[in-house]
Write a protein that binds this DNA or RNA. Structure first.
Length: 563
DNA sequence: GCCGTTTTCGGCCCGACTGTTTTCAGTCG
């Protein structure tokens, strides 16, 4: 699948077009098309072969022609053409906060600055003071020095705990702040933190938060600071009567906001962060999000869905799904114990699961060939089952299910034979090995695993580790089709660095009526909490409880996994 | 470059903050 490559090319076009000083709407158009293709839940090559490129949102004649060139010849002459118009170095300079297309163009063209290192030298020499002004030079110099610490996005637990730390600090100063932005939308990675407050002066308190390293800007309504960890925190202050509109605006996403504002315009109203207004400027709504949605004739859209992926259109016709909730989860079907690489024993895991209100817990220790994880042999599994039986007697009606995380070996064969696999209450297969295999081979392994009669679930299908390792380049539409044809289940793994399947594919899978299971993949009792993150992915993938196997009670799950 | 229950041309979300621009351009979210 070349979706990521094509999206990347279009994103480059967007940046180049901006740096070349072209009409800024061109750049926006490229970026929108890039997003469309990045989030496309089918193979772009398939769309192209079937002549459906023009059906994609934000793809018109111009962009379709470029995609056609790339997919048919493997070349992208349009990139080189545009590059010729951009002075060398401008793109790199634009990565710096405070340098936009204008400044980058000027610095690269007039001063021949080609890199951040060169910019640093020029700034230190003072030669740019006349051009940029004293303040700006100083600010940029600070930025250049800071830029050397790599920019990173936080995983959800880190983002949540930082947000909690900041809001506790504010609370100690008798100020309430509300977390918004991508954290409120439940995105798998969070770049910066966004808060809304209804108390004047909140910005002054934020600036005194102990982790603050520098102040990016500070005004009566908006304050932005940078923490020593490199994370940016933005705070905006509003009147209580504006709170709902403010939360909507700051929760985003940006593209969702644009669609919402356009919808307001089409109804002769105006929507901004202060409220919804009629054509005479009179306020119609703003105090709560519910009020604003309703005044626009929309159903309430849960934050997790606000990504401009059709949710506004769905809300207009009352088709927002009732998203799955964490309270509806009745059990966990992938956890590990001390039998393999877990830190807690089976009984502790079961007690912790019961304490969460679950009816059942599927213990899925690794199979034999995962030697690094102390994978179990047939003999050890039989011993484990005895232990499970006795705990089950004690804890009834709570039930521990005998599962396995079964290794799909490099050659596509499974760790155990069919006869033994039938003795488990269910089998989840995983592909951990063989990164360097071709996409075709990996796809074949995944498809044959999910098609195997002894396998019920494919765990974390791409095996990605966010920020550390790309997932296997498997053909996911093909995998989804195989799961559907064989009536099998795909997993959303709740480990914060996995969250695999990705939300885009989760949505596609359920559209094809493939059941999903949301698991914590816990390796300790505490990690059972990771279920929450998996549920967020499900919600971002528009799942209802009906789509999620483990929103069913024990009876329903056993029926579905009947062997 | 894309798009259309006002439009196939003329728009494209809307506002805060910074700096030294004495009225607004650049950048950002």
């Amino acid at each position: 699948m070349k979706n990521a490559e094509v999206a990347d090319l279009l994103m480059q076009m967007s940046l180049l077009s901006e740096a070349a000083g072209e009409d800024r709407f061109k750049s926006i158009a490229y970026r929108r098309a890039a997003t469309t293709i990045k989030e496309l839940s089918e193979d772009i090559e398939k769309v192209w072969r079937e002549n459906r490129l023009l059906d994609l949102p934000y793809v018109g004649e111009g962009i379709a022609k470029k995609i056609d060139e790339y997919l048919s010849t493997g070349e992208a002459t349009f990139i080189d053409k545009l590059k010729a118009k951009v002075p060398e170095g401008a793109l790199e300079l634009m990565k710096l906060q405070g340098i936009g297309p204008r400044t980058a163009y000027k610095l690269a063209k007039q001063f021949g600055i080609k890199s951040l290192d060169e910019l640093e030298r020029e700034l230190e020499s003072g030669r740019l003071k006349e051009e940029l002004g004293e303040q700006k030079s100083k600010k940029l110099l600070d930025e250049v020095k800071k830029s050397k610490t790599v920019e990173r996005r936080m995983l959800l637990p880190e983002a949540e705990s930082l947000a909690a730390e900041i809001s506790n600090y504010m609370e100690q100063n008798r100020l309430k702040v509300f977390s918004t932005g991508s954290l409120r939308r439940g995105k798998s990675t969070v770049g910066d933190l966004d808060f809304v407050s209804t108390t004047a002066g909140a910005g002054d308190i934020l600036m005194r938060f102990p982790g603050v390293e520098s102040i990016i800007e500070h005004g009566p309504k908006r304050t932005s600071v940078k923490l020593s960890t490199g994370i940016q925190v933005d705070l905006r202050v509003f009147e209580p009567s504006q709170f709902g509109a403010a939360m909507m605006y700051f929760t985003g996403s940006k593209e969702h906001n644009i669609t919402m504002r356009n919808l307001a315009l089409s109804k002769k109203m105006k929507l901004n962060e202060y409220g919804l207004f009629d054509s005479s400027g009179k306020v119609i709504a703003g105090r709560s999000e519910e009020e604003v949605f309703s005044a626009l004739g929309l159903q309430f859209i849960p934050p997790e869905m606000r990504e401009n992926r059709g949710e506004v259109e769905a809300a207009l016709v009352g088709k927002i799904p009732e998203l799955v909730k964490i309270q509806e989860i009745k059990g966990d079907l992938q956890v590990h114990s001390t039998w393999s690489d877990g830190e807690s024993d089976v009984k502790s895991m079961a007690m912790a699961a019961k304490a969460l209100g679950y009816e059942y817990l599927g213990v899925t220790d690794h199979s034999l060939s995962m030697r690094v994880a102390n994978g179990l042999s047939e003999e050890r599994f039989r011993k484990q089952w005895k232990e499970i039986d006795s705990i089950n007697e004690e804890m009834a009606p709570f039930k521990i299910l005998k599962g396995v995380e079964l290794e799909v070996r490099g050659d596509g064969t499974l760790d155990f034979d069919r006869k033994f696999l039938e003795e488990f209450e269910y089998v989840g297969a995983s592909i951990h090995q063989g990164y360097r295999q071709s996409p075709d081979k990996l796809t074949h392994r995944a498809v044959s695993a999910i098609s195997n009669p002894s396998v019920d679930i494919l765990f974390h299908p791409t095996n990605r580790l966010i920020g550390r390792r790309e997932g296997h380049q498997i053909d996911i539409p093909k995998l989804i089709k195989a799961a559907r044809d064989n009536d099998k289940i795909l997993e959303i793994d709740g480990q914060p660095d996995r969250l695999d399947l990705d939300e885009v594919w989760v949505r596609r899978a359920w559209e094809e009526r493939v059941t999903l299971v949301i698991d914590s993949d816990a390796h300790s009792t505490e990690q059972l909490q990771f279920m929450r993150y998996g549920v967020l992915v499900g919600r971002r993938g528009w799942l209802t409880s009906r789509a999620v196997l483990n929103s069913q009670g024990l009876k329903g799950v056993l029926k579905r996994l009947k062997r």
